[in-house]
Design a binder for these strands. Sequence first.
DNA 1: GAAACAAGTTTGTATTGCAAACTTGTTTTG
DNA 2: CAAAACAAGTTTGCAATACAAACTTGTTTC
Lengths: 107, 107
Amino acid sequence: MGKTGTNPKAILDLDRIVHEPARLAILTVLASAEEVAFLFLQRVTGLSKGNLSSHTQKLEGAGYLETVKAFQGRIPVTSFRITEDGRTALRAYHQQLRALLPKEGKP
Amino acid sequence: MGKTGTNPKAILDLDRIVHEPARLAILTVLASAEEVAFLFLQRVTGLSKGNLSSHTQKLEGAGYLETVKAFQGRIPVTSFRITEDGRTALRAYHQQLRALLPKEGKP
DNA sequence: GAAACAAGTTTGTATTGCAAACTTGTTTTG
DNA sequence: CAAAACAAGTTTGCAATACAAACTTGTTTC
């Protein structure tokens, strides 16, 4: 009896900021560390610098992360931290995905 | 111990055809029925006609569904069926999502 | 038979995602 | 020590979307 099907309209409500794979990757990394440096984030996601830059800007615009600019000696280092809003959005997104996934082992 | 984090690069490999919410909604509906009429699909997804038309065309181009044009009496009725490839792609997508979701009840 | 309606498709536009080119500063080297 | 190479990011330009408004073709209704 368990109709698995979520209401298809709910799928259209997914947070597009989070849904974009590059940004989901970024948020996923940020969620597991206190602060992450630009170059580390680039290596671990495999994104190009330009791409990473614009996606982090978008995430910052959405209030999902904050940018920390500092100096390591005399070279500039940009790092990111996920915000509370970002964490909340990511969790909400995960919940939405869970809701739309069929229970493991459907025909 | 249990590092939940999937490799972030894997997130970038998500099938973009399926990942788009409108198309995911469409495929989800199609996967649960043998054949679905255009207008029914429109009502259940909430998509506009134009939108639905172009997304189904894209899915057809990808080989994920097939279009069936018929007549109900004398009015034309367009319906869709998911293909084997479509079903495979949807299942693969579900697997990828499961892999990146943290186990229920993380801090 | 003209006017409203139905079922889809095509067209136009604004938004994106992406990488190449640029900027600013630092290190290396001839 | 000047110039060339390099590093860290950002901005710019372009191709690909996603979306809805306008159009097309055919059918009822009045």
